[in-house]
Amino acid sequence: MATRERRSDAVANRDRIVEAARAELSESNGAAADLKLHRVAKAADVGQGTLYRHFPTREHLLAEVYRFELTQLVDAVAPLLAEHPPLEALTGWLARLVEYARVKRGVMAAIEASAWQDLYADHHHRLDQALELLLDRGKAAGEIRAEVDAADVILLLGALSRVPEAEWDTRVPKIVTVIVDGLRRR
């Protein structure tokens, strides 16, 4: 039983560390270089040894934040579709994607290229599938153009990577609105 308690404590510690890192990244607008591990440990209420036992490097922690954010984004699709018409669900999901993109930008810059490629290859198909589901529901409801697919939308969303951080809050909502308007069935 003691082993089981330690395991649950270890899981809880890991979860708190990831959440603290997410909060730190949000405060720094995704600037992973500004992520201070001692502040993450303090915010998670764990010692630095515990943090490093779970995440030996900053890159390991950032990769886990990326995985967590991606899972949250993918898991948001079903509830959005259950609560909203398809185009509204897609719009809400794209708003979440924008926040994810802000975090991802900082994470991408901080993770070694080879590690990033592995992380991307292992998880990005889930994002594509989530977007396809939203688009398929919108097409079935007659709200979204039939000829559009997830690859088209992802290419359009690539514009987000060019938005300077200082202009993010004003430009990105406009860009997302233009994308959604372009997806509407005419």
Rank of each mutant, 00 (worst) to 15 (best):
D118K: 10
D149T: 12
V176C: 03
I179M: 07
E83I: 00
T50Q: 09
E165K: 01
Y66A: 14
V163F: 03
K42G: 06
E88S: 05
P164K: 00
E59K: 15
P173R: 13
I175D: 04
F55W: 03
L81W: 02
A151V: 09
W168E: 01
E147H: 12
A63R: 11
Y120R: 10
L97R: 13
E59M: 14
A166P: 00
A113D: 15
V176Q: 07
I154F: 05
R137H: 14
A141N: 11
V46T: 12
L127N: 02
L127K: 03
A63D: 08
H124I: 13
Y120T: 01
K104E: 15
V77E: 06
V46F: 06
D181C: 07
A43T: 12
E83R: 11
D136R: 15
E132V: 12
L160Y: 06
L80F: 15
E64N: 04
Q117Y: 10
G47F: 09
A63H: 05
A109R: 13
E99T: 08
L133E: 12
P56E: 09
F55G: 02
L131V: 08
A140D: 15
V180F: 08
G92Q: 11
S114Y: 09
T71L: 06
A140I: 14
K104I: 01
T177K: 11
A113L: 15
L70N: 01
V180M: 07
A159E: 06
R96V: 05
V172M: 11
L70P: 00
I154N: 04
H84L: 13
E69C: 04
E88L: 10
E64S: 08
K139T: 00
A140S: 13
D128N: 07
T91W: 06
L81Y: 02
Q48E: 12
E83Y: 03
T91Y: 07
P86H: 01
R145S: 11
R58G: 10
Q48N: 12
L135N: 04
M108Q: 10
K42Q: 13
Y66M: 09
A151P: 00
Y52L: 12
L87H: 04
V46Q: 04
G142Q: 07
R137V: 02
A109I: 01
L90C: 02
D128T: 15
A130S: 10
G142I: 10
E69A: 09
A101Q: 14
V98P: 03
Q72S: 02
G49F: 02
H60W: 12
V176D: 04
G47T: 12
G138E: 10
K139L: 03
E132F: 05
Q129C: 06
P164T: 00
Y120D: 09
I111W: 14
R105G: 12
A159R: 08
L127P: 00
I111C: 08
P86W: 05
Y120C: 01
V148S: 05
G106V: 07
A113C: 08
R171H: 00
R171D: 00
L80R: 14
L131F: 08
H125R: 14
V65T: 11
V107R: 03
S161K: 07
Y120W: 14
I175E: 04
